[in-house]
């Protein structure tokens, strides 16, 4: 076999490999890309998100909104809460164990579908390892909902965002912590 022919073979194989990888990626993308939406996105969107399409809903857990249904023996525990970005709030229902760092007034990302009744049925509540960590999408959603104006300077540290009272305007931006 000549060098030229061998090179053709290798190029052909590379083409097949890359082509199939691309095809696989694109087909898998089509069904599995999950969009992130903030409560304001959902309330202002026309038409509202289809109930068969899963997406991620993120924001702050509204203070005082967490309500645990009395446990029924032999069934998954059910919990209700509201996710807010300051401007709008979406009621969420979740059957399962909440992650260790789930807390009222803190950032949360949930995944699920929006029912026709306007209640978001979460199949997953995403957990974190660190209570000062703010998911970037949530930070962005708060920014868009008017909780932080980029023109007014640097964002307040994430630790204070997490304890924001969603009903009030945020406190004046604190100085950056040294690290």
């Amino acid at each position: 076999m000549t060098r030229k022919k061998r090179r053709m073979w290798i190029l052909l194989l590379c083409g097949i490999g890359l082509g199939s990888a691309t095809a696989l990626t694109l087909t898998a993308f089509q069904d599995n890309l999950v969009f992130f939406r903030s409560p304001s996105d959902i309330m202002t969107a026309e038409p509202r998100p289809a109930p068969d399409r899963a997406f991620r809903l993120g924001g702050l857990v509204e203070s005082g909104s967490v309500e645990r249904q009395p446990a029924v023996a032999g069934q998954r525990p059910v919990v209700h809460f509201r996710v807010t970005d300051g401007a709008h709030a979406i009621p969420v229902v979740y059957a399962g164990v909440l992650p260790d760092l789930f807390r009222e007034g803190q950032g949360v990302v949930t995944m699920g579908r929006l029912g026709p009744d306007g209640i978001f049925r979460a199949s997953e509540v995403l957990a974190r390892h660190d209570e000062t960590y703010m998911p970037p999408e949530v930070a962005d959603a708060l920014k868009r909902a008017g909780h932080w104006n980029p023109a007014q300077g640097a964002p307040p540290p994430p630790a204070t965002w997490n304890t924001l009272d969603p009903d009030r305007r945020p406190p004046a931006p604190a100085g950056r912590t040294g690290s």
């Binding site: 199939s20 696989l24 898998a28 599995n32 999950v34 969009f35 992130f36 939406r37």
Partner: peptide, 18 residues
């Protein structure tokens, strides 16, 4: 400017045939 995430189903579906 789209906020999306790519979850386990994508990776399972796309890597399994390879």
């Amino acid at each position: 400017g789209a906020k999306v995430s790519v979850g386990p189903p994508f990776f399972n579906m796309a890597s399994f045939p390879l």
